[in-house]
Design a binder for these strands. Structure first.
Lengths: 149, 149
DNA sequence: ATCGAATAGTTCAACAATAGAATTAATGAG
DNA sequence: CTCATTAATTCTATTGTTGAACTATTCGAT
């Protein structure tokens, strides 16, 4: 009991430390990849829209766990930059679909590739077996986290 | 070659997805634990100062990978709330040490415990062996990320 | 010992992200 | 038809962030 509790606390602390370093470090590395005119959050929005065609502001808000007014702000900035268009739905005139422009597609896919290259460089420090085991546990964790929301 | 590249890309994609869910989900869960008057970033600053007594603004800036003016802003807010004090160094009058007040200590340790409880609930979904293997790889990753900055 | 470079911290202006309340417009259920 | 609901926007305020300019202090090379 005593020992288990101690182990648990130790694991939690180690997780907190490692998580902080990875999160902060990756954020900085991704930020360095961004062109002058794009923030990391804006890139993540473009990336989501590239892989979820015809999404709406509400879907983005749910995915990113923020209020809809945040999404309005961010898509307005992206629209002003000419990276996406607001396309009204034919059936329900309340809903607005978000569609990347050609330039939005281009820049998003370019940046996605760059980010993947950064991650590839990191993953190559691990042997295949360890990487797979890690990601499998990570996915379980993601599932547990999602369920706990 | 072809197969390895494909595996790598698949692993990267799985990592990106899982990482997003975990990061966003944990942020929301931690935010829910915060009292009215404290943001998550402010809590993280208090937590750092509790475990790194006598730190300075420069050390905080380096740790959080942000500019010093961001740190000035955040510690001014925490100081205004009475959660920390600026204590000038005796030797070098340029440096200001940051010291939690009693209330800062109290609230930080309280919140730290709550956050750890959230993490404990998550970790208990995994058997000991898997959790340890996961965290060991995670720490390796943190080391690689840190080295790549 | 002094003068210029470097360092620690702050200030200021600008911008991005966010929350939350109020608003508009359209849909849907009784 | 009316009223509640839904999708999106607007507006205000706050927080975090950057980068440049600034103050005060210390350090180092001559």
């Amino acid at each position: 009991m005593e020992k288990d509790l101690c182990l648990l606390k130790s694991l939690i602390h180690r997780y907190e430390v490692a998580n902080f370093v990875v999160e902060r470090g990756l954020h900085v590395k991704v930020k360095d990849l961004m062109p002058e005119e794009l923030t990391v959050d804006q890139f993540k929005t473009l990336r989501f829209l590239r892989h979820n065609v015809n999404s709406t502001a509400s879907e983005l808000a749910q995915f990113f766990c923020v209020g809809k007014s945040s999404i309005t702000a961010i898509i307005t900035r992206l629209s002003d930059k000419g990276l996406l268009d607001r396309v009204p739905d034919d059936g329900d005139r309340r809903v607005i679909h978000l569609k990347l422009t050609e330039e939005g597609e281009r820049i998003s896919s370019l940046l996605e590739e760059r980010v993947q290259n950064v991650l590839a460089d990191l993953i190559e420090h691990f042997d295949e077996k360890e990487a797979i085991a890690f990601i499998e546990t990570f996915e379980k964790l993601a599932k547990v986290v999602k369920a706990a929301l």
